[in-house]
């Protein structure tokens, strides 16, 4: 899923400085799971904004709404009535959601309230780690399902680097497992260690032309 984290409050306050009535819009999918932009976070951010502005003697009115997926036009379109009432929208969705909102309501400024950071998974409560770099040229089948491009601090396609610490830790971050040690152990379990001896030519980072576009095959 897409991981995001909330922008510093000062930045959000500054973005909202000119407005008296705003819509704080959340997304019920990825950013809800990573505690950045779900219904709860919408309520908290709106409340913080109201409190901060009221302390400054410059009240702000906030409308709150959370749609199932802010990256889908049909779902964002449900907010039409609310958007019509406000001067600006503060979106807690990922960058994709913010852009859909901005495209649908072109006459209203849309501000991102979160920084979209990476594609990852929850490791433990309140901690998410990056798992995929969305390179468009997946070779997880050859690395035992562990992506060294993302999980190795040096992003090595042919590893390990030689600096692995005792206990299989990374030389750059001793708290992190060396991705290539993980790859070795996984392949060892599968009896496919021969894959470690292969040399991989540099990846084709142009596999996905930017902006990315995927057309489903016709049935």
């Amino acid at each position: 899923m897409i991981i995001a984290e909330r922008k510093p409050m000062e930045e959000i306050k500054q973005a909202m400085a000119l407005y008296k009535k705003v819509l704080v819009a959340g997304c019920g999918t990825c950013v809800t799971v990573c505690w950045a932009g779900g219904e709860k976070e919408v309520g908290i951010l709106a409340s913080q904004l109201r409190l901060a502005r009221s302390a400054e003697g410059n009240e702000i009115v906030t409308l709150e709404a959370t749609v199932e997926r802010q990256c889908e036009k049909e779902m964002v379109a449900e907010l039409e009535d609310k958007v019509a009432e406000v001067e600006a929208v503060l979106s807690l969705a990922c960058g994709s959601g913010v852009q859909v909102m901005a495209e649908l309501f072109e006459d209203k400024p849309v501000f991102p309230a979160v920084n979209t950071t990476f594609i990852g998974m929850p490791q433990k409560e309140g901690l998410w780690v990056e798992m995929c770099g969305a390179c468009g040229d997946c070779f997880l089948d050859r690395t035992g399902g562990i992506c060294p491009m993302v999980r190795c601090a040096k992003g090595l396609l042919n590893g390990p680097c030689g600096g692995t610490r005792k206990g299989g830790k990374c030389e750059i971050d001793p708290d992190k497992d060396c991705a290539w040690v993980l790859v070795y152990r996984r392949l060892e379990k599968q009896g496919r260690l021969d894959l470690m001896r292969q040399y991989y030519t540099p990846k084709n980072f142009r596999a996905v032309k930017r902006p990315g576009r995927v057309q489903a095959a016709k049935a």
Binding site: K40, I44, S47, Q48, R50, L51, S54
Partner: peptide, 10 residues
């Protein structure tokens, strides 16, 4: 919840 505390202050 946090929101209950914030709303009380609001």
């Amino acid at each position: 919840d946090v929101i209950h505390m914030l709303r009380a202050l609001e």
